[in-house]
Amino acid sequence: MPDMLTAEPFLGGYTLDLGDVAVAEVTDISIVSIAMPLGGGDALANAVQAAWGCALPAPRGTSVSSDGSVTLIFSTPDQTLAILPGVDGLAVTDVAAKLGDVGYYTEQTDNWVGLRASGAKSISALERICPLDLASMSVGGAERTVMEHLGVFIMREDDERFLLLSGSSSAKSFLHAVELSMRNVT
């Protein structure tokens, strides 16, 4: 509809390539939190298996749907963050419809700004702000921690590629922290 509001990425779709290391805002994902009802773990796990063909993620890990489009991140002992492709309206509606009445669903897409850090020096850059042992993190591993006072989900997508999610209101400060780390090691 012509009158509908236009969405603006929190960092305007920022990208920076410094050769050995690069950062880019991730603007094409939706995020939904799925909470597991007390005593309802099996029902939720079954629904996730049926819908996406994968299990719920274990602590410090992720689980990827059989078609590779959806990634589930362990967030708390009874919550999972689902990362879905594309962004349009509220993803929570689709997830709730897909999984049914076996979980509690909360839209999280706009709570987070996504940054993808990549390159041979991505660990050298991130170790300036991330207290976790990234070299020991396996591909598909995910953790939540604090970088420069900001809460961050960090997920290792590949040997030299990390997805970072941090609060969208502090997106600029977070980008500054990541970018400065990269500039400091290149």
Binding site: M1, D3, L5, T6, A7, E8, P9, F10, E107, S169
Partner: peptide, 30 residues
């Protein structure tokens, strides 16, 4: 605006006839 998801609350801190309207943050500027 014909389709952007929103939440509407009729609450007032000012004491006037007032609403609080919420849209996903990426639409905030718009």
């Amino acid at each position: 605006c014909g389709g952007t998801p929103a939440r509407l609350f009729r609450i007032s801190f000012s004491g006037e006839l007032a609403f609080e309207i919420a849209v996903p943050a990426r639409y905030g500027d718009a």
